[in-house]
Amino acid sequence: MLNYNSPIMDAKNYSGIKISVTESVIKINLRGKNRDFITKIGKELSIIPPTDPNISSGNEKLNILWLGPDEWLLYSNDKIDFKNNNSLEDRLFDQISKVKLGSVTNVTDHWVMINLKGDNVFELLSSGCPFNFNDFKNSKGAVTQTLLNHIDVIIHNKNINDLNLFVRRSFSIHLWSWMNDSARFI
C-alpha cells in the first residue's frame, strides 16, 4: 500500500487569520496560444479560460486562473482520489496536447494549496509581499503571481478575505513556518 503524505497537516488560528492546507485537489497547468485552444477548453470544461490578465473563471467544481497570455492553472474545489481518478488530466491531454493545441501538465503535487481566511489575511501577506493588494482585496476572483518572503506564490482571491495561495511543494514547509511566525505579530 502506498500512503498519501501531505507536507503540512495542521490548521492554525491566529487573531483574524486561519491558515490551513486543502490537499488532494487536482491541479493542471494549461498552455496554448490560439483561439482553438480556448474554445476546446471551454467545450471540455464548460469554463472559458480568461484572456484578460490577473483574473480567474470557474464554476462550483473548477477554477481556471490566468497565469500569463498563454498559461493557466486549473484546479478543483473538491478532493480527488488519485487511485481511482486520473480521467480529467487524461481527457484534456488527449483533447489538447495530442492534437497539438497546446500543453496539459499535471501539477497536482507541484503546488501545495494553502487557504487563508479572516479579516487580517492581507496584513499577513503585507509582511512579505511587495504586491499592492489595495484593489485586489475587493475584487473577487482576482489572481496574482508574486513573491511572499522571497518565494514564488500564486494567490487566488476566492472570496472576501478568503484566499487560496499556491506554493511549490518543496518551499511549502518553509513558507508555512514563516507564515505562522508572521501571524503571531498581526
Binding site: 490578465p53 490577473n54 500569463g68 511587495p130
Partner: peptide
C-alpha cells in the same frame, strides 16, 4: 506589458 505595474523584485 502583460500583468501591469509590479515591484522590481518580481523581475
Amino acid at each position: 506589458p502583460y500583468c501591469g505595474e509590479r515591484d522590481q523584485s518580481e523581475f
